[in-house]
Protein backbone atom coordinates (compact mmCIF):
# COMPACT_ATOMS: atom_id res chain seq x y z
CA UNK A 1 0.00 0.00 0.00
CA UNK A 2 1.48 3.34 -1.05
CA UNK A 3 0.00 5.54 1.63
CA UNK A 4 2.99 7.79 2.06
CA UNK A 5 2.43 11.37 1.04
CA UNK A 6 5.42 13.32 -0.25
CA UNK A 7 6.53 16.05 -2.63
CA UNK A 8 7.08 13.23 -5.17
CA UNK A 9 3.31 12.76 -5.46
CA UNK A 10 2.05 13.38 -8.99
CA UNK A 11 -1.39 14.89 -8.63
CA UNK A 12 -4.38 15.05 -10.96
CA UNK A 13 -7.24 17.51 -10.35
CA UNK A 14 -10.73 16.31 -11.29
CA UNK A 15 -13.08 19.19 -12.02
CA UNK A 16 -10.14 21.51 -12.77
CA UNK A 17 -12.13 23.81 -15.08
CA UNK A 18 -14.79 24.60 -12.46
CA UNK A 19 -14.72 27.66 -10.22
CA UNK A 20 -13.31 25.89 -7.14
CA UNK A 21 -11.20 23.43 -9.06
CA UNK A 22 -9.43 26.17 -10.95
CA UNK A 23 -9.02 28.44 -7.92
CA UNK A 24 -7.55 25.72 -5.74
CA UNK A 25 -5.35 24.37 -8.52
CA UNK A 26 -3.64 27.74 -8.56
CA UNK A 27 -3.28 27.78 -4.78
CA UNK A 28 -1.91 24.22 -4.66
CA UNK A 29 0.58 24.99 -7.46
CA UNK A 30 1.78 28.10 -5.64
CA UNK A 31 2.27 26.06 -2.49
CA UNK A 32 4.45 23.54 -4.31
CA UNK A 33 2.14 20.61 -5.09
CA UNK A 34 3.23 18.71 -8.19
CA UNK A 35 0.03 18.89 -10.25
CA UNK A 36 0.65 17.13 -13.55
CA UNK A 37 -2.78 17.22 -15.15
CA UNK A 38 -6.45 17.92 -14.77
CA UNK A 39 -9.57 16.07 -15.89
CA UNK A 40 -12.76 17.77 -16.99
CA UNK A 41 -15.84 17.05 -19.07
CA UNK A 42 -15.49 20.57 -20.41
CA UNK A 43 -13.53 19.73 -23.57
CA UNK A 44 -13.25 23.33 -24.75
CA UNK A 45 -10.62 24.09 -22.10
CA UNK A 46 -7.14 22.75 -22.87
CA UNK A 47 -5.17 24.26 -20.02
CA UNK A 48 -5.78 25.71 -16.55
CA UNK A 49 -2.93 27.69 -14.93
CA UNK A 50 -0.51 25.91 -17.24
CA UNK A 51 -1.84 22.44 -16.30
CA UNK A 52 -2.99 20.34 -19.29
CA UNK A 53 -6.61 19.19 -19.20
CA UNK A 54 -7.85 15.77 -20.38
CA UNK A 55 -11.35 14.33 -20.55
CA UNK A 56 -10.15 11.09 -18.93
CA UNK A 57 -7.08 10.32 -16.87
CA UNK A 58 -6.43 7.34 -19.14
CA UNK A 59 -5.52 9.71 -21.97
CA UNK A 60 -2.82 11.27 -19.81
CA UNK A 61 -1.66 7.88 -18.52
CA UNK A 62 -1.12 6.48 -22.03
CA UNK A 63 1.35 9.25 -22.86
CA UNK A 64 2.97 10.11 -19.55
CA UNK A 65 2.46 7.18 -17.16
CA UNK A 66 0.79 6.91 -13.78
CA UNK A 67 -0.23 9.63 -11.38
CA UNK A 68 -0.23 8.65 -7.71
CA UNK A 69 -2.92 10.93 -6.40
CA UNK A 70 -6.20 12.51 -7.46
CA UNK A 71 -8.16 15.34 -5.86
CA UNK A 72 -11.84 15.77 -6.75
CA UNK A 73 -13.86 18.97 -7.03
CA UNK A 74 -16.54 17.56 -9.35
CA UNK A 75 -20.21 17.92 -8.33
CA UNK A 76 -21.61 15.11 -6.18
CA UNK A 77 -23.79 13.80 -9.02
CA UNK A 78 -20.70 12.91 -11.03
CA UNK A 79 -18.29 11.93 -8.28
CA UNK A 80 -18.65 8.18 -8.69
CA UNK A 81 -17.96 8.31 -12.41
CA UNK A 82 -14.86 10.46 -11.80
CA UNK A 83 -13.68 8.10 -9.05
CA UNK A 84 -13.95 5.10 -11.38
CA UNK A 85 -12.01 6.93 -14.06
CA UNK A 86 -9.17 7.55 -11.59
CA UNK A 87 -9.32 3.99 -10.24
CA UNK A 88 -8.98 2.52 -13.75
CA UNK A 89 -5.98 4.77 -14.43
CA UNK A 90 -4.15 3.35 -11.41
CA UNK A 91 -4.47 6.19 -8.90
CA UNK A 92 -3.39 5.13 -5.37
CA UNK A 93 -4.63 8.00 -3.21
CA UNK A 94 -8.00 9.71 -3.63
CA UNK A 95 -8.93 12.97 -1.94
CA UNK A 96 -12.59 13.91 -2.37
CA UNK A 97 -13.40 17.50 -1.43
CA UNK A 98 -16.96 17.39 -2.82
CA UNK A 99 -19.78 17.51 -0.28
CA UNK A 100 -23.26 15.99 -0.51
CA UNK A 101 -22.04 12.71 -2.00
CA UNK A 102 -24.80 10.05 -1.83
CA UNK A 103 -23.99 7.61 0.95
CA UNK A 104 -24.42 4.55 -1.27
CA UNK A 105 -21.84 6.00 -3.68
CA UNK A 106 -19.45 6.48 -0.77
CA UNK A 107 -20.05 2.88 0.36
CA UNK A 108 -19.22 1.65 -3.15
CA UNK A 109 -16.02 3.72 -3.22
CA UNK A 110 -15.00 2.51 0.24
CA UNK A 111 -15.47 -1.11 -0.89
CA UNK A 112 -13.31 -0.47 -3.96
CA UNK A 113 -10.41 1.13 -2.07
CA UNK A 114 -10.50 -1.57 0.61
CA UNK A 115 -10.47 -4.30 -2.05
CA UNK A 116 -7.55 -2.75 -3.90
CA UNK A 117 -5.71 -1.56 -0.77
CA UNK A 118 -5.76 2.08 -1.74
CA UNK A 119 -6.46 5.22 0.25
CA UNK A 120 -9.53 7.44 0.11
CA UNK A 121 -9.68 10.66 2.14
CA UNK A 122 -13.16 12.20 2.32
CA UNK A 123 -15.69 12.87 0.93
CA UNK A 124 -16.77 16.25 2.26
CA UNK A 125 -13.31 17.06 3.59
CA UNK A 126 -10.63 19.78 3.44
CA UNK A 127 -8.00 17.31 2.19
CA UNK A 128 -4.40 16.72 3.15
CA UNK A 129 -1.54 19.12 3.85
CA UNK A 130 2.06 18.21 4.68
CA UNK A 131 4.05 21.40 5.33
CA UNK A 132 7.50 19.73 5.49
CA UNK A 133 7.00 18.42 1.97
CA UNK A 134 5.26 21.54 0.63
CA UNK A 135 2.47 19.20 -0.38
CA UNK A 136 -1.12 20.32 -0.29
CA UNK A 137 -3.88 18.18 -1.74
CA UNK A 138 -6.75 20.20 -0.38
CA UNK A 139 -8.36 23.56 0.18
CA UNK A 140 -6.97 24.70 3.54
CA UNK A 141 -5.45 28.19 3.94
CA UNK A 142 -1.80 27.11 3.92
CA UNK A 143 -0.38 30.05 5.85
CA UNK A 144 -1.82 28.58 9.06
CA UNK A 145 0.12 25.36 8.60
CA UNK A 146 3.75 25.97 9.62
CA UNK A 147 6.04 22.90 9.64
CA UNK A 148 6.56 21.20 12.99
CA UNK A 149 5.87 18.11 15.05
CA UNK A 150 2.07 17.81 15.39
CA UNK A 151 -0.05 15.67 13.10
CA UNK A 152 -3.75 16.53 12.88
CA UNK A 153 -6.60 14.09 12.31
CA UNK A 154 -9.81 16.04 11.84
CA UNK A 155 -13.44 15.34 11.00
CA UNK A 156 -14.07 19.04 10.56
CA UNK A 157 -12.68 21.47 7.99
CA UNK A 158 -12.75 24.98 9.33
CA UNK A 159 -12.15 23.82 12.86
CA UNK A 160 -8.96 22.18 11.60
CA UNK A 161 -7.79 25.59 10.33
CA UNK A 162 -8.62 27.13 13.70
CA UNK A 163 -6.56 24.60 15.64
CA UNK A 164 -3.78 24.62 13.02
CA UNK A 165 -3.43 28.36 13.45
CA UNK A 166 -2.91 27.88 17.18
CA UNK A 167 -0.41 25.03 16.73
CA UNK A 168 1.49 26.98 14.07
CA UNK A 169 2.27 29.63 16.67
CA UNK A 170 3.84 26.89 18.82
CA UNK A 171 5.16 23.47 17.93
CA UNK A 172 4.04 23.55 14.27
CA UNK A 173 2.48 20.91 12.11
CA UNK A 174 3.28 17.70 10.29
CA UNK A 175 0.90 15.63 8.22
CA UNK A 176 -2.64 16.96 8.56
CA UNK A 177 -5.53 14.80 7.44
CA UNK A 178 -9.04 16.19 7.08
CA UNK A 179 -11.16 13.04 7.12
CA UNK A 180 -14.51 14.69 6.39
CA UNK A 181 -17.83 15.16 8.13
CA UNK A 182 -19.95 12.45 6.53
CA UNK A 183 -21.20 9.42 8.47
CA UNK A 184 -19.23 7.15 6.13
CA UNK A 185 -15.73 8.28 5.20
CA UNK A 186 -12.96 6.59 3.23
CA UNK A 187 -10.42 6.85 6.04
CA UNK A 188 -11.59 6.55 9.64
CA UNK A 189 -9.66 7.74 12.68
CA UNK A 190 -7.99 4.35 13.25
CA UNK A 191 -6.76 4.23 9.64
CA UNK A 192 -5.63 7.84 9.90
CA UNK A 193 -3.42 6.89 12.86
CA UNK A 194 -1.87 4.16 10.71
CA UNK A 195 -1.06 6.73 8.03
CA UNK A 196 0.31 9.22 10.57
CA UNK A 197 2.51 6.47 12.01
CA UNK A 198 3.93 5.63 8.57
CA UNK A 199 5.02 9.25 8.32
CA UNK A 200 6.81 9.06 11.66
CA UNK A 201 4.81 11.56 13.70
CA UNK A 202 4.26 10.82 17.39
CA UNK A 203 2.18 13.79 18.51
CA UNK A 204 -1.37 13.96 17.26
CA UNK A 205 -4.30 16.31 17.68
CA UNK A 206 -7.70 14.77 16.99
CA UNK A 207 -10.50 17.15 16.11
CA UNK A 208 -13.73 15.28 16.53
CA UNK A 209 -17.38 16.08 16.83
CA UNK A 210 -20.68 14.62 17.98
CA UNK A 211 -22.01 11.46 16.40
CA UNK A 212 -20.66 7.95 15.96
CA UNK A 213 -17.83 6.46 17.97
CA UNK A 214 -15.03 6.68 15.46
CA UNK A 215 -12.71 8.85 17.58
CA UNK A 216 -12.85 6.52 20.57
CA UNK A 217 -12.24 3.40 18.48
CA UNK A 218 -9.51 5.24 16.61
CA UNK A 219 -7.59 6.12 19.77
CA UNK A 220 -7.97 2.57 21.12
CA UNK A 221 -6.34 1.40 17.91
CA UNK A 222 -3.63 4.10 18.10
CA UNK A 223 -2.57 2.92 21.54
CA UNK A 224 -2.34 -0.66 20.23
CA UNK A 225 -0.02 0.36 17.40
CA UNK A 226 2.35 2.22 19.68
CA UNK A 227 1.13 5.80 20.12
CA UNK A 228 1.54 7.09 23.68
CA UNK A 229 -1.61 8.53 25.26
CA UNK A 230 0.19 11.61 26.61
CA UNK A 231 1.11 12.53 23.04
CA UNK A 232 -2.51 12.53 21.88
CA UNK A 233 -4.74 15.60 22.28
CA UNK A 234 -8.45 15.62 21.52
CA UNK A 235 -10.91 18.42 20.90
CA UNK A 236 -14.62 17.85 20.28
CA UNK A 237 -17.24 20.15 18.82
CA UNK A 238 -20.91 19.95 19.66
CA UNK A 239 -20.99 19.78 23.46
CA UNK A 240 -24.17 21.87 23.40
CA UNK A 241 -25.79 20.36 20.32
CA UNK A 242 -29.41 19.35 20.86
CA UNK A 243 -30.04 15.61 20.62
CA UNK A 244 -31.41 14.17 17.40
CA UNK A 245 -30.71 17.33 15.38
CA UNK A 246 -28.28 17.20 12.53
CA UNK A 247 -25.64 19.89 13.00
CA UNK A 248 -24.61 20.68 9.45
CA UNK A 249 -22.48 17.63 8.82
CA UNK A 250 -24.52 14.60 7.86
CA UNK A 251 -22.51 12.66 10.42
CA UNK A 252 -22.91 15.19 13.21
CA UNK A 253 -25.99 13.93 14.95
CA UNK A 254 -26.33 12.58 18.45
CA UNK A 255 -28.10 9.23 18.43
CA UNK A 256 -27.57 7.63 21.80
CA UNK A 257 -25.07 8.29 24.57
CA UNK A 258 -21.97 7.21 22.66
CA UNK A 259 -22.30 10.04 20.17
CA UNK A 260 -22.18 12.72 22.87
CA UNK A 261 -19.16 14.90 23.56
CA UNK A 262 -19.04 14.11 27.29
CA UNK A 263 -19.02 10.38 26.52
CA UNK A 264 -16.18 10.76 24.03
CA UNK A 265 -14.21 13.04 26.35
CA UNK A 266 -14.62 10.68 29.26
CA UNK A 267 -13.40 7.76 27.13
CA UNK A 268 -10.39 9.86 26.06
CA UNK A 269 -9.50 10.80 29.63
CA UNK A 270 -9.81 7.15 30.73
CA UNK A 271 -7.27 6.25 28.06
CA UNK A 272 -4.93 8.99 29.28
CA UNK A 273 -5.48 11.28 26.31
CA UNK A 274 -5.46 15.06 26.92
CA UNK A 275 -8.79 16.74 26.29
CA UNK A 276 -8.90 20.34 25.05
CA UNK A 277 -12.14 22.05 26.09
CA UNK A 278 -11.71 25.52 24.58
CA UNK A 279 -9.71 25.98 21.36
CA UNK A 280 -7.18 28.43 22.82
CA UNK A 281 -6.44 26.13 25.79
CA UNK A 282 -4.39 24.11 23.35
CA UNK A 283 -1.78 26.86 23.14
CA UNK A 284 -0.94 26.47 26.81
CA UNK A 285 -1.18 22.67 26.79
CA UNK A 286 1.39 22.05 24.07
CA UNK A 287 4.14 24.32 25.32
Amino acid sequence: MRTVFSRQDKVCVYGITGRYGSFHTKRMLEYGTNIVCGVSKNVSVREVHGVPVYNSLRNFFEQHGEVSTAIFFVPSQHIFEAFEDALLAGVEKFVIITEHVPIHDTLEMVRAVRRERKVLIGPNCPGVIYPQERLKIGIMPEKYFKPGEFAIISRSGTLMYEMAKILSEGPGLGLCLGLGGDPIVGTNVAEAFEIVKEHGFEKVLIIGEIGGEDEVRGVEHALKIGFRPENIYAFFAGRHAPEGKRMGHAGAIVEGEKGKVWYKERAMIQMGVKVVRLPWELERMVI
Binding site: S156, T158, G181, E209, H249
Partner: peptide, 8 residues
Amino acid sequence: CGAGIVMA
Protein backbone atom coordinates in the same frame (compact mmCIF):
# COMPACT_ATOMS: atom_id res chain seq x y z
CA CYS B 1 -18.88 28.56 7.48
CA GLY B 2 -18.44 24.89 8.29
CA ALA B 3 -20.45 22.76 10.67
CA GLY B 4 -17.51 22.13 12.98
CA ILE B 5 -16.68 25.76 13.56
CA VAL B 6 -20.33 26.68 14.12
CA MET B 7 -20.72 23.91 16.69
CA ALA B 8 -17.50 25.01 18.41
